[in-house]
């Protein structure tokens, strides 16, 4: 049933859903990194932000598909607030 639903989607919808799934996973991964940095690693916010952005850059490097994001525009585009101060 799940496969049939995907197969019957118009191509525009399929591409949009792929993009949404990919972006939501990217956001989830970055939030995990941020949460760990916040909870366990660095009590100082500036330092935390530095750690998170460094990790984001590493993730981007590894996953070339995400190179179109910039850190701040990505953070700003998220529906849920990013758990760290973004400045």
């Amino acid at each position: 049933m799940a496969a049939k639903e995907i197969e019957e989607m118009p191509i525009e919808q399929l591409l949009a859903e792929i993009s949404a799934s990919k972006n939501s996973q990217f956001a989830a991964t970055i939030r995990q990194i941020a949460k760990f940095a916040e909870n366990y690693l660095y009590p100082d916010e500036t330092q935390r932000y530095h750690v998170v952005t460094t990790e984001i850059k590493y993730v981007k490097l590894k996953e070339s598909a995400y190179t179109s994001f910039t850190d701040k525009s990505f953070i700003a585009a998220n529906e849920e607030p990013f758990p760290l101060a973004a400045s």
């Binding site: 639903e5 995907i6 792929i18 799934s21 990919k22 996973q25 996953e63």
Partner: peptide, 19 residues
């Protein structure tokens, strides 16, 4: 622009989300 492995991975993800 995505490499094929990213597309395959995301198709998997989409399939799982639908289920």
């Amino acid at each position: 622009t995505e490499p094929e492995e990213i597309l395959v991975s995301t198709l998997y993800q989409l399939f799982v989300e639908k289920i």
